[in-house]
Computed example of a mutant assay.
Amino acid sequence: MRELEKIKAERAAQRAADDAAKAARDQEQREVDIARGNPLLNATDFNVKRRWDDDVIFRNQARGTEDKRKKEFVNDLLRSDFHRRFMSKYVR
């Protein structure tokens, strides 16, 4: 009986050691899979293939703003740019 108990204990110890080794291998494989699954860590070329705004709807909204009239000095107070803007904003 002692011999049988000794054999059972040896087998249980061997099984526990095998399970621990298998768990360690599985953990290492899991970490490798996680690291390889992350495209940010695997990317060797960091070139941007498209611009960030290629797929937006409202592009080139600032077109047409370049042809505004330049401010010019007029000695007449009624024809000055400030007076025209003031009148169009508050009076009309």
Results as ranks from 00 to 15, higher is better:
K49C: 13
K6T: 11
K8E: 12
I57P: 02
K68W: 14
D33P: 00
L4A: 12
R59N: 07
E5A: 15
A16Q: 03
D26S: 03
S80R: 03
A21G: 02
V74E: 05
I57Q: 09
F46Q: 05
A43Q: 05
R69M: 03
K68Y: 15
R51L: 13
S80Q: 02
N75S: 08
A20Q: 03
R59Q: 11
R84F: 08
K49M: 13
N42P: 00
R92F: 14
M87A: 12
R36F: 11
R79P: 01
N42L: 12
E3A: 06
A23S: 04
L78M: 08
D19P: 00
L4T: 11
K70F: 06
F58Q: 09
L77Q: 07
D26H: 03
R36W: 08
P39Q: 00
L40R: 15
Q27P: 00
W52E: 10
R79H: 11
G37K: 01
R30I: 09
R84A: 12
K70C: 04
R15T: 08
D45Q: 02
R30H: 12
A21H: 05
D55S: 15
V56H: 04
E66T: 04
K89E: 14
V48T: 09
E66D: 08
N47E: 07
V48Y: 06
N75H: 07
F58K: 14
F86N: 11
Q27D: 06
L77M: 10
R36H: 11
M87T: 15
R69N: 05
I34Y: 04
T65R: 08
N60F: 06
R11Y: 10
D45I: 01
T65W: 13
K70W: 04
F73N: 07
P39R: 01
E66H: 03
K6S: 09
F86G: 04
E66Y: 03
F82T: 10
V56K: 08
G64K: 01
A43N: 03
V74Q: 06
